[in-house]
Computed example of a mutant assay.
Amino acid sequence: MSKDELKKKLTPIQFKVTQEDGTEPPFKNPLWDFFEEGLYVDVVSGEPLFTSKDKFESNCGWPSFSKPIKEEAVIEKKDRSLFMVRTEVRSKEGDSHLGHVFTDGPKPTGLRYCINSASLKFIPKADLETEGYGDYKSLFE
C-alpha cells in the first residue's frame, strides 16, 4: 500500500507508530493490560506476530511478549535514536515499526518484546477461523 492508502486505512496513531517509527504513550493504549487468549497480528499487513501465550505483565505500559510466534516473523535493527542504543523490532512482511526488544524479560528467553498497541490487531481465539487464521488454532489447544 502507498503512504496515502495507509493514511486512509490506519488511525493517526497507528500511522505514526508503524510508518514514522513513533511510540504511543505508556499505560494509555488498549493492549498494555489486556490478556484475553488470541493472536496479535501486524495492523498493516495482517501477518501473525505474537500470541497471548507469550504475553506477560511487565509494568512498562505497553504490551510485552517473551517471543514472537516465529523468529522470522520480526526483524531486529539497531536503533541509535534518543541518545542510546536499542534494538528496534519491525514486522517482516509489512515493515511496520512495532517497538523494541530488551534483555530483561522472563525465562526461558529472557527477552521482553515491548510492542506498541497501535501496531497490533488482536484476533480472539474464538475468531481465528472466521478471520482467516485457522492454522493458528492449534497454538491454543
Rank of each mutant, 00 (worst) to 15 (best):
V44E: 09
S81R: 03
F50Y: 14
I115N: 11
C60P: 06
G132F: 05
P63A: 13
H97K: 04
A118L: 02
T109M: 03
S45R: 05
Y133I: 13
D21K: 15
S64V: 10
D54E: 11
E131D: 13
T51F: 08
L82D: 00
W62P: 07
G61V: 05
S45A: 13
N116P: 11
K77I: 03
I75T: 14
L10E: 05
G38Y: 10
V17Y: 07
P48G: 12
G132P: 05
H100K: 01
A118S: 15
K9D: 04
K7E: 14
V74E: 07
G94F: 05
P12G: 09
D42S: 11
K67G: 02
G46V: 02
D135Q: 14
D79F: 00
E72L: 00
K70F: 05
F122Y: 10
W62F: 10
E131Q: 15
V44G: 11
D95P: 02
K53I: 09
Q19I: 11
C114S: 08
V44K: 07
E93D: 09
C114Y: 06
E129V: 11
L120S: 11
F102R: 00
K121S: 14
P108A: 03
V101Y: 02
S52D: 01
E72D: 15
L128H: 13
K77H: 08
K107D: 14
K55M: 13
S138K: 15
D127S: 14
